[in-house]
């Protein structure tokens, strides 16, 4: 009698394990980034009306893009963050890739001194999602 209960228990355990595996085996998480993180302390080190072009480049490296506009030289730094999640079930598969960017613009005046610093961070709101419908 005891042996029968043990066999049944074993079968139930194996079945539960297989069910768990069938649910978990189709899950994937992926992550990728483009460019270095724009650290707040590096940005804070740049002072408006004080820091020069050289100091900016020393602190942040060479800009990804240089724009000449409205009497300013604008240095643009950007970073992209990518999060992808997939749920691969028996019949249905769902996957979603979300990409967001951080951008830093440094406006330099004609003398090469920082006139304005504009940092926008979107990547801190980036999420892993698998549901591809809705907003």
């Amino acid at each position: 009698m005891q042996g029968t209960i043990t066999t049944r228990g074993l079968i139930v355990t194996v079945c539960m394990l297989c069910l768990c595996l069938s649910v978990l085996n189709g899950c994937s998480f992926n992550r990728g980034t483009v460019g270095d993180e724009l650290k707040q302390e590096n940005v804070d080190a740049i002072k408006k009306g004080v820091s020069t072009r050289t100091e900016v480049v020393t602190a942040l490296g060479a800009p990804d893009r240089i724009i000449q506009a409205n009497g300013h030289e604008i240095f643009q730094y950007y970073r992209y963050d990518i999060k992808a999640k997939g749920l691969f079930l028996l019949i249905l598969n769902f996957s979603r890739i979300n990409i967001k960017s951080d951008d830093l613009y440094i406006f330099l005046d004609k003398n090469g001194v920082v006139d304005e610093v504009v940092l926008g961070k979107r990547t801190d709101r980036l999420e892993f999602q698998f549901w591809p419908f809705g907003d």
Partner: peptide
């Protein structure tokens, strides 16, 4: 799977 739904944002 029978069907897959994918999205890139």
């Amino acid at each position: 799977g029978l069907a897959s739904f994918n999205r890139l944002s």
